[in-house]
Write a protein that binds this DNA or RNA. Structure first.
Length: 464
RNA sequence: GCUCUGGUGGUGUAGUCCGGCCAAUCAUAUCACCCUCUCACGGUGAUGACCAGGGUUCAAAUCCCUGCCGGAGCACCA
């Protein structure tokens, strides 16, 4: 099986579907996973040189290792050879009709006057194309199909056209005569032994077009399945590489891994495992209609994967400083690193004379609240007074449990989320977490530690 | 205009080919409750769907017809 990306940028979430599905199939049935960059248009779908590696990187993030990586722009001579063969069989003809003119004839089912040229002339003109003797728009090579085919999309389609602008890859910069997707892809699928093709509904007619070429060569066409587009909820941004690129260029996004971007690099940085994405993509099935992927599905999968491993810490946003007093006041709090794993030990959070809590968590005056891992306090006149109550206050008397941090010696944290950046103060022990570690800020959510700078750590928010 | 293709709860999906075991599966979501010193994890329960109308049949989500709604192609893009 193969994934045939157009290397125009790093992948967005929707792109994950192809490697997820074919990778899973290949793993399951011991198949071959071929990545073929279909980079045969240096003009309108101009390849982005950095995208080749970025895409391979995205695939590896998803957990797949391609068996073979090809670039169509390395294989142009091969396409020429098959074109020559096709011409000799009388299966293709050079055509100098302007696009609009041919389009009109096609609509009526009228053949191009070039259609019956003898193969020698065609071959000669095709070599002219190969040698760059024509400019863009002057000459194309058409596959001779059926000019009266009831589906106009299949009538004598273009196999090669001229492009004046050099390919960005140096190795391919000299070519001017480029194959169209249907020709290139059709030849490659056969040559690389692809047995099963999955592609989008936008390419519904491709197989039917390519079938004409396969018939000329007497090849057997692979099994084909089409699926609809994937839309993803939870993003304001259009899921399209070009839109994301524009937003980055305009400075609205910091880059492909901005937490607001619907890209694989983004969710990777947020600590979401490729496996979680793959599972969700597999769950979408193979429907030909468009589907909406709920991010919550990816989040649920990821939560399953990371919860056991994620140690717990406190982070207080918009911290309200509240003095703590009372004779029963403990010197420190010691909540467990993980509620289901006492063996991992407990955090020690020393409390001097005040704590920070989130404004929404402040109880009404005179009411009690339980500072998790620390103890019960009563809120009196803007200060907490330790009550010395035991845990039954929570279990039986309905006292709420909240998270908190000491007022001093905290770690400043910037939390980058899909909805923008937040700041807060984390408990001292947070400083000991490793970069790349996935932790949970209790009552807030799972985050990936991105950076521990001297006075401001950065985390990327994954999900709650 | 021509040609493809599809419509099962909020979302995704199973079932549709070979009609009955489907008063419709599973997941996610939402809401309760249990557990719990997190609104995490785990457990229990609830909510919620066969596009519409005809037809065939003892029996239709499944077969047929019509309609409605949607997606895609008809590029010298991929």
């Amino acid at each position: 099986m193969r994934a045939a990306p157009n290397p125009n940028g790093p992948w967005h979430l929707g792109h994950a579907r192809m490697p997820a599905v074919i990778g899973t199939y290949c793993d399951r049935y011991d198949g071959e996973f071929v990545v073929r960059f279909d980079d045969t248009d240096p003009e309108t779908k101009r390849p982005d040189l950095s995208a080749y590696d970025a895409i391979l990187d995205d695939i590896s993030y998803l957990g797949f290792e391609p068996d073979e990586v090809l670039r169509a722009s390395n294989r142009v001579e091969t396409y020429y050879e098959y074109a020559r063969e096709l011409i000799e069989m009388g299966g293709a003809y050079t055509c100098d009709l302007p696009a609009e003119e041919f389009s009109e004839l096609k609509r009526e089912g009228t053949p191009s006057p070039n259609r019956d040229k003898d193969p020698e002339t065609v071959l000669e003109q095709f070599e002219g194309m190969v040698n760059g003797e024509y400019s863009a728009g002057e000459m194309v090579l058409r596959v001779k199909t059926d000019i009266e085919h009831k589906n106009p999309a299949l009538r004598d389609w273009v196999a090669f056209r001229m492009i004046d602008r050099p390919h960005p890859r140096e190795e391919a910069a000299d070519y001017r005569c480029w194959p169209m997707l249907d020709f290139q892809s059709g030849i490659d699928d056969h040559l690389t032994g692809i047995t099963h093709i999955i592609r989008g509904i936008d390419l519904q007619d491709s197989a039917k077009r390519q079938q004409f070429v396969y018939d000329y060569f007497d090849w057997e066409y692979p099994e084909v399945l089409h699926w609809g587009h994937v839309q993803i909820d939870a993003y304001d941004i259009d899921i399209s590489t070009s839109t994301i690129k524009e937003l980055i260029d305009a400075g609205d996004l910091d880059g492909w891994d901005d937490p607001r971007a619907p890209t694989l690099q983004s969710i990777r940085r947020r600590g979401i495992r490729g496996e979680a994405v793959v599972e969700s993509m597999i769950g979408l099935g193979m429907s030909t209609s468009d589907v909406d992927l709920a991010m919550s599905s990816i989040y649920a999968n990821n939560r399953d994967l990371v919860d056991e491993g994620a140690n717990r810490y406190f982070l207080v946003r918009n911290g309200e400083r509240v003095p703590v007093g009372g004779d029963e006041k403990p010197a420190a709090g010691s909540p467990p690193l993980h509620p289901n794993h006492e063996d991992r030990g407990r955090r020690e959070i020393p409390v001097d004379d005040a704590v920070l809590v989130e404004p929404d968590d402040l109880p009404n005056d005179g009411e009690r609240i339980w500072l998790k891992g620390y103890g019960c306090v009563r809120y009196d006149d803007g200060a907490f007074v330790a009550t010395g109550d035991d845990i039954d206050a929570v279990r039986e008397e309905g006292v709420d449990v909240i998270h908190w941090v000491p007022a001093d010696n905290t770690v400043s944290v910037t939390m980058r989320t899909p909805d923008g950046d937040l700041t807060g103060e984390a408990e001292p022990g947070f400083a000991e977490t490793d970069v790349d570690e996935i932790i949970q800020f209790e009552r807030i959510g799972f985050v990936r530690v991105d950076d521990h700078a001297v006075d401001d750590s950065v985390v990327y928010y994954a999900h709650d």
